[in-house]
């Protein structure tokens, strides 16, 4: 019977595609496992309290720590969030509730393109508009570069979360004689808060590990934080410079810093998962 043969054929095609996609998924997981395992094995042995609390020593001298770079990364992430969150959150609200469909489509497209721009291009852009005119590499310019990367992520995740809030909530609020902005802030945003927080965390995790934009803006600084208008060190920069240095000791510090950064990003991702699970069980 032909139907029998067709059935067998379908069954084998099904098995084949299932097998192929399983292999693809396996490759992705193995790669992730290798990266995590490799940084873990190489990094954890050099990680100690001294490394976290001491400042750097001149190249070639043994010892020294990465305290300044940890603080630098925190400052840069904080600065970028300060600049990006107001813009990103407002843009998300605009997209989901206030923009006319055509305008929204255009803005959404622009945000998606911006999110796809290679981070090194963003770095060059910040270099051109801030570092060159101000004649100095600076923490501020790095903050701006990271904020530019952050804005579209925050805007789009905020928009998506706000859209998930049922329209009936908006109408119920409007029917009470509440203005659209008060309804947004008092009813819709609280309903989307976990989703918005998730988006912010993801954006933070993304920019915490960015290196390319920092090369053109933060530059790196061996003396710790001096001013927002002076160069500043950061973990990704330290990994980049130390990994290329001829000194064994600096290689080890780079591994430890890489491990720290991976743990930071992994930690944020786990936090995000935990938050979104809270939302589901709510």
């Amino acid at each position: 019977m032909t139907t029998e043969r067709l059935y067998l054929r379908r069954k084998w095609i099904n098995r084949l595609t299932l097998g192929l996609s399983s292999i693809a998924a396996g490759v992705a997981i193995i790669l992730l496992g290798l990266i995590l395992g490799y940084t873990l094995v190489n990094g954890i042995s050099y990680l100690n309290l001294g490394l976290l609390t001491n400042v750097a020593k001149p190249a070639g001298e043994l010892g020294g720590g990465i305290r300044n770079e940890i603080i630098g990364t925190l400052i840069l992430v904080g600065l970028a969030s300060l600049l990006a969150l107001p813009v990103g959150l407002m843009a998300g609200m605009f997209l989901s509730d206030f923009a006319k469909p055509r305008v929204a489509a255009a803005v959404r497209f622009a945000a998606d393109v911006l999110a796809g721009v290679p981070s090194i291009v963003v770095g060059v852009f910040a270099y051109a508009i801030m570092v060159r005119p101000m004649h100095s590499y600076s923490a501020l310019s790095a903050g701006v570069a990271l904020a530019i990367i952050m804005i579209p992520i925050v805007a789009r995740t905020t928009e998506e979360s706000l859209r998930l809030v049922p329209n009936s909530m908006r109408e119920a609020a409007l029917a009470l004689g509440i203005t659209r902005w008060r309804a947004m802030l008092g009813v819709v945003v609280p309903g989307a808060l976990t989703g918005i927080a998730t988006g912010i965390m993801l954006a933070v995790a993304r920019i915490a590990g960015e290196t390319a934009p920092l090369i053109f803006t933060a530059l790196g600084n061996n003396f710790g934080f001096q001013s927002l208008l002076k160069p500043i060190g950061a973990l990704p920069l330290l990994i980049y410079t130390h990994a290329l240095s001829p000194y064994q000791d600096q290689h080890q510090q780079a591994w430890a810093a890489a491990f720290l950064l991976v743990i930071l990003v992994l930690g944020i991702s786990l936090l995000v998962r935990w938050i979104s699970r809270q939302r589901k069980t709510q």
Binding site: P166, S168, M169, E171, A172, A173, L174, A175, L176, G177, I178, T179, R182, A183, G186, V187, P190, G191, L193
Partner: peptide
């Protein structure tokens, strides 16, 4: 809309608010 209120087909209390806050919402947010 403050003079003409509305009750919808599907009960739509604000899920993030307590019972008290739900009733107070109209005053608080105006």
């Amino acid at each position: 809309r403050r003079r003409i209120g509305m009750v919808f087909q599907k009960p739509s209390p604000f899920p993030t608010m307590s019972i008290f806050d739900n009733v107070a919402a109209g005053l608080r947010l105006t």
